[in-house]
Structure formats: C-alpha cells, structure tokens
Design a binder for these strands. Structure first.
Lengths: 336, 336
DNA sequence: TTGTAAGCGTTATCAG
DNA sequence: CTGATAACGCTTACAA
C-alpha cells in the first residue's frame, strides 16, 4: 500500500501538493503537476487511507443504517423484506457518492451511541421502533439523522414521509366498496404518532365514512415474521366474524393468506386480503396480493440524498411519498 | 467526545496507562489504577476512536461482506432472501465480537480492490459469482477471505461448504420416488466447480440411478428474482413435457409455483415442485414448499467464526454443512 | 504554484 | 507499575 508521501516522492513534490490534487483543489496546483501526479497515483494504485483521513478531518465517510428492534423480535432485521428494499435503495444511491454504509441492528440506545462515537459516523438512517426517550438521546449526538417509518413525530426533523393515513384509507375504502363491512386490521402494535397509527386512522376514517362501527376485536396486533403471520392466518380461519383483512405489510398479508388457505379458506371467495408496500413478495401469493403500493427503494434513495445534502451544508426539504392502490386477485366481493 | 488524554488527565496518569487499561493489558497496571480509570471512562462515556486505532494498528475491526453480482441482474443483493439470511447470521455472530461489518454489492474486481485498500478491511466474506480471474486478484490482497457458495473451488482456502450434490440427489430421488420421470432442473447458470453445478450433478446422478435419461431441454436457466421466476412459471404452464420441477432456490421455486398456479396448474396434482434452502418464504406458498433444508443463518455464523479465528492467528478447519429433505405439500405422486 | 510544520487519537517501544 | 516519545497517513494554515 503506497502512502501519500510515496506518491509525493515519486512525483518530486511534497505531500501537500498530492493532497491538493486528490481533493480536487486544482486551482492550487499547476495543470502539468496535476496530470503528472494523477498518472503516478494511477500507476501505483494509490488509494487514500480512510483511517488517516477520518482521524484528521473528524469525518468518516460512513453512513450508519440502523434498525432498532426490541430484543424479543430478534433474529435480526435482514429478514424483513421492507428493510431489504430500503437497503437496496440506500446502497444504490450511496454508491454514486463517496460514502459507505455500515448496517447494524440495534437493541438499545446505549448500543447505538457507543457505536456512533466509536466510528464517528457522519450521518444516520434509522428504521424500526424509535421511542421518545431514544429519540431524545439521539438529539444529543452531532450527526444528522433521518427517520424512516419511525414512531416519532417531529416536523422540524428530516424525514422521508409516506401518505400512511391515505394508504389506510384507500385500502379500507377498497374493501368497503366491495361490500365488506367487517374488516380486520392487522399490524404491529401502533405507537403514538407512528406510521401504523396513521394507517389505523385511515382505516377508522373509512369505516366512519361508510357508517360502519369500529370494533376493538377487529384490531389485531401481530409480529412481522412470516411464520407468525401464517400461524395467525390459521388461527383466523377459526373465526367467523369478518370477511376481509387489511394487513399493514405485504409479508404479514402473505403469511396470513397462506395460513388461511392452508386451513381451507378460499381467497378472495371466503375472505379478501389487502396488504401494504407492494414488495416482490406480493407477487408470490396465489391469487396475487392486492396492496397499497409505495416505492420503498426510492424512499431509500431519497433518504440518502437528503442526508448527503445536509452534510453538504444545505437544509433539504422534507419529502412525502405517495401511495397507490394496486388491485390484484386477493380482494373480491364480500360473500353474503 | 472525550479522548484518551482527557481520561488520562482526569485520572492523573498518562495516555499510555489508559491505553493499557482499555486493551486489557492489566498486568502492566495496578488493580487500583485499573479500577479508577475504568470508573472515569464509564463516567465520561469515553469510547476509543476507531480511526486513530485503525491508523496506528493498521487494522480496522471491519469485516467486509461483499456480494458479487453481474450488472445485469442489478437492483442490489438485499432482495435475495438467501443473502438476507446469511447477513442475519453474520451479524448475529459479529455482534458478539468487537468487529463490525460493511456490506457492499460489488460489480467488478476493481471496485472491490479499491474498497479494500480504502478501508483496510480486516477480513472478507464473499458471496455470489466469483470467477477465476476475480479470485486470482483477490489472492493478491492481504486480508483473509472466505467464500460462501461461490463458484470457485479451492480446497486450500477457507470455505463454508454445503453438501450441495447430496441436496440435488435427495431432491431428485424424492421426486423419482413419487413416480416422476420427467423432471425439470431450474437454477442460475452453473459454472465450473460451483454449487449449482454440484446440485446439478446430484440431479443427474439420481436420474442415472433410476435409469432415467438426462434431457437437455429439461435444464432451465433462470435469474433469481421473484418476478422473473413467476414469469417462468407462467411460461412453463404451456409446456407439457414434465411433471415435476427441482428449483435450486426457494425463491425460485415459490415464484415458479405462483406462476404455474396463476396459469391454472394445480400443485402438486398437476406438477410437483421442490425447492432448496428452506427459507421463511417456503412457508408462504400454498401448499407449503417441499424443500432441501440448509441452515443459512448458522452458515453465516460459522463464516464469521472462521474468519475471526483466522485473524487470531489460528488455522480453522473447513466446515461442511448438511442438508435435509423437508417434505411439505408441494410434491406429490406423479399423474399418470 | 509549491513547501513547512503541526496535529488528529491512538499504540508501541523503551526507559525509569 | 508508569511515563515520555515517536509514529501511523493525512489535511490545513501559513509561509515562501
């Protein structure tokens, strides 16, 4: 591994000049020197050491991507297709910059803060369950951070929003328009000000518009694993007090569908199911899943763009992504 | 952010001593001093700077996880559930150590090598398509690396193997035992010495054992995306020259199943399908997917353990994981 | 346009 | 057992 001074020696200049060349400070160096040094850099395969650079500039060129989960749901966050899609977008955008990412599942605020000071991460993207206390701790550290689908509401903060309430509204209206009156809402536990809460609000609003009652027993909390969802589906096959299900995630919907079908229920003849996200998994079910589409990959890209422009000293506007109903086969007219 | 000298000053000692305390060099420091310094470290929330440490020790405490893909299949590697499961295992094991991971999708050897010199990654885990040339380049760099399901065979190398051929054998034998004689093999393009080739060998061996011919037209190459697999399934619904399918990945099997079913074919009555991996997605299909199970998460953990012990100067033994037939509903007797 | 010198936070060597 | 000092590779005033 050649160092900057190796290059300098080879070029007959000093490290300063090489540094200026590397960092595009081209006004401070004569064109010939620039060319000569660049040739040598190329030839020697020189690459600056991030460690040294980081130490000096107190910036790491690392973006941390953290998924906050409660220990109980453990098994890691990579198995969640939503998170996977987000990572895809983040990486896609990041590779156009000179930043890199460290991905980490995090259980406690302490763990996160230690990680941060360890590596002086330049910026953070956070997903998962971020409670208020955690959020307050986060504000004590200097790096800009951005929440995706977190459960904290703070308009002054960078955020990549989604029209969650509208999504819940559209999904429920769609079911109601098909004649369904008893509709289950399935999702993880909604927290104050969180996205699940928003979708739930949409659900309730649609019910209200249609003059339908909100019934507590039709509100189902469920973990997000495929296995758990399938179990839930099998359990639901025993109930008879609903004709449709709105699940707040495609994985959840797909799992529930599989469970129902394995227990002998037909979809959509017996029960209609609608999901949320339109991830690839929505194409795996039979019939294919009707769902509320969002562009998760683009949201990941947008998150990175916002953070990078924030690092460049700008103050990016918050952005809200649209949702869209995608009708496929898993929803149909309510049985009488 | 306090530094080591801040702590030293506070403790009335010098940075050296604090450093010794941090690095567990406890024989060189008196117990009282150790205790006092640790208390102060705790109180001040001091965390060592990785950048400085890395610069000094020329080791980064970073494990790189690289998925090598050809540009065409792009869209990133996080969408592949196999890779996701592997990452889960890697992270699970890594968090028990003081190493961290950087994850990166990589298209070319140059990109990888640049990344490496940039960060002086301590060790690498590589997945995806690693051709011979790439492999040779990899050997020119100093960090220990480990291949998971790569397409290069080199027994002298650290590797986390799987009984791939046996898996192919078991899958095909299972179908044959159900009376199937015309069996499709679906997977990505097999390369010399790769895992797909191995599974294919198992497939061929099982055919041979049963006195069945190997027919080129029953060898199907397919990309690994869900959408592509579903398209393939729909296309296959038009063919009538087979009664069963062995797919080399669950995603592929599930996608093909969905495509077939959406085109009106019944599974397993019309066509039997068997997958490979037993990832959560195998529970999403209806009927649930018969598959060859492997423990991907454990393979990820094993990979990390091997690398860490290699970094600790040991020479870990290569390890080969078993496979197991999991019979579920997607395979049944061949129609006559 | 180029060079000098200091310093980022840590660890390693050697001395006390 | 503890301390002084140098060095890791780089950037950045400031000087020439």
């Amino acid at each position: 591994m050649p160092t900057i001074s190796d290059i300098a020696r080879l070029a007959g200049v000093t490290a300063t000049t090489v540094s200026n060349v590397i960092n595009g400070n081209h006004k401070r160096v004569s064109p010939q020197t620039v060319a000569r040094i660049q040739a040598i850099i190329q030839r020697e395969g020189y690459v600056p050491s991030m460690a040294a650079r980081s130490l000096k500039t107190n910036a790491s060129k690392i973006i941390g991507v953290f998924n906050l989960i409660v220990p109980e749901e453990s098994g890691g966050s990579f198995q969640d297709p939503f998170h996977s899609a987000l990572l895809t977008g983040i990486e896609l955008e990041l590779r156009r910059s000179d930043y890199f990412m460290m991905v980490r599942t995090v259980y406690t605020a302490e763990e996160l803060l230690e990680f941060l000071s360890n590596w002086n991460i330049d910026a953070l993207i956070l997903t998962g369950i971020l409670n208020q206390g955690f959020y307050e701790q986060l504000k004590t550290q200097p790096a800009p951070f951005l929440l995706v689908d977190s459960e904290v509401h703070d308009e002054s903060r960078m955020q990549v929003h989604l029209k969650d309430r509208e999504g819940g509204l559209m999904a429920t209206r769609h079911l109601i328009s098909l004649g369904h009156e008893r509709i289950l809402f399935c999702g993880p536990a909604p927290m104050e000000e969180g996205v699940i809460k928003e979708r739930l609000m949409g659900y309730r609003q649609a019910l209200q518009e249609a003059g339908l009652p909100f019934v507590q027993e039709r509100l189902l909390l469920s973990p997000m694993g495929i296995r758990e969802a399938a179990d839930l589906g099998r359990a639901l096959a025993l109930r008879d007090d609903f004709t449709a299900i709105f699940a707040t995630a495609d994985v959840l919907a797909a799992g529930i569908m599989a469970g129902l079908q394995n227990a002998g229920r037909r979809i959509p003849e017996d029960i209609s199911v609608i999901g949320f996200d339109d991830l690839p998994v929505a194409q795996l079910t039979v019939p294919q899943l009707t769902t509320i589409r969002q562009d998760v990959v683009q949201r990941g890209r947008a998150a990175v763009r916002m953070l990078l422009s924030s690092l460049a000293g700008k103050k990016p506007d918050n952005i809200t992504f649209p949702v869209e109903l995608v009708q496929r086969g898993s929803t149909g007219p309510a049985r009488r």
